[in-house]
Structures are given as structure tokens and as C-alpha cells.
Amino acid sequence: MRNIITLTGRELSSQFYSPIAYIVIAVFLVVSGIFFATTTFLAGGPSNCRPLFQLLPIVMVFVLPMLTMRLMSEEFRNGTIETLMTAPVRDIEVIVGKFLGSFIFFLLMLAATLVYPFLVSFYGPLDIGLTFTSYVGLILLGALYIAVGLFFSTCTRNQVIAVLCSFVLLAIVTLLADFLVRQIEGTPRVVMQQVSLLSHYHDFARGLIDTNHTVFFLSSTGLFLFLAVKVLEFRRWR
């Protein structure tokens, strides 16, 4: 556990050292600010942030892979992985530490968007429950995105390949799957709904907490972290 905390702290510090992180936060806030002003904060519109919360996952598809691309790839490229591997830490601790570092950074980034519901609450009765569930959904979704990004970062020493692979997979299961859900009917639709991340997230943005979606996000995140650990183990023995 101590190792995980140390690695998390190290990862978090390195995020804050990097100017890219601040640029990423600024870009995230610019895009979410535009969405907020154009789709959510409208005179006479419903006093909740649901339109914004429905669009944030799309922003996250682009932003989070940029945060995660360097997690392991950079260690491979700089050769610092050798030091890490010979240190008295287990693979799983490395992966979990890296994951938590990025995840905390993501939470801070997400916390910056709290200002939007706060603004809405000044001009109408804010639906607190809906805001709460939306953030729960975003946090679960963000955790999965980071796990996916970390997995691809573990697979390659090339950051560009890592970011592209993450982006492609996330775009497929987020955007394309959601598009397909709208096009098909019957059982294939039910199956596609189970695959589509937006379908799972959608209920959170509507003010619902559903055990199915919660289990989906948590188990999928766990799976990708597990895969990342296995890849790291495999690399050690190659």
C-alpha cells in the first residue's frame, strides 16, 4: 500500500510538473465552457446541467488519452522502467499507482466544472440529485477511460501510438456504439446498449444510479487495469 501511495504521489507530481497537463485542463475547460454557455445556461431552459453532462464524455474521449499516453510509454522510452522494475515494487502496484495518479488529476480537472452547476443554482432551483449522479457517472467513465489509456500506454513505448489506440477504441465504444444503438432495434440494440459507454453513462446524466451501469464501469476498469498488469508482467519476461 505504501508503494502505491508513493507511486501515486510521484505520478501526480509529474503531472503537475508537465505544462501539457495545464494546457489539457485549459482546453477541457474552454470546450466545456462553450458547451455550458451554448447548451445549458439558456434563459428559460431547465435549471440543471444535463446538456453539459451529456457532452462532457465526448470531450473526455479526446482529452483523457492525452493525459494517459505518457504514463508507461515514457518510462519505456526513457529507460526508467528498468529502475522501476528492479525496485521492490510489484507490477500491480506500479499500475495502480500510475492509475491513481492520473485519476486524482482527472478528479481535480473535473472539480473545476463544479462552477457550472454553482452558476445555475443562482438563477434557478438546481437539481442537486441529478448533478450528483452525473458526477458519479463522469467519475466512473473517466476511471474507465484512464484504465484504457494506461493499458495502451503499457503496450507501447511510442506515445503517439498509445494515444491513437486509446482514442480509436474509446471513440468506437463511446461514439460509434452510441450511433449504432440509435440505428438498430430489437436484441442487437440491447446488446449494443450493453457495449456502448454512453448508453451506460446516459442514466447517470438523467439522475439515476443503476447497479448495472456501476458494475459495468467498475468491472471494465478493473479488467483494463488487470490487462495492463499482465502486459507489464509479460514485458518483464520477454
Binding site: 437539481d127 441529478l130 438523467r206 439522475g207 439515476l208 458494475v215 468491472s219 479488467l223
Partner: peptide
């Protein structure tokens, strides 16, 4: 084994899910 566990857990949670509506207007 991990994949199987994930698929099974998701299948069970899909079949036996619980929902809570937290909106103040009971919208859902």
C-alpha cells in the same frame, strides 16, 4: 478467467439491476 468474471458480473447486474432515482422532481 478475468474476462469471464467481468462478462458474468455484467450479465448478472444487467439481469438483476436496481435503480435509484435521485432527481429532486422524481423525473425518472
Amino acid at each position: 478467467i478475468a474476462l469471464t468474471l467481468v462478462v458474468v458480473s455484467q450479465w448478472v447486474s444487467f439481469k438483476r439491476n436496481t435503480r435509484v432515482d435521485l432527481t429532486s422532481s422524481r423525473l425518472n
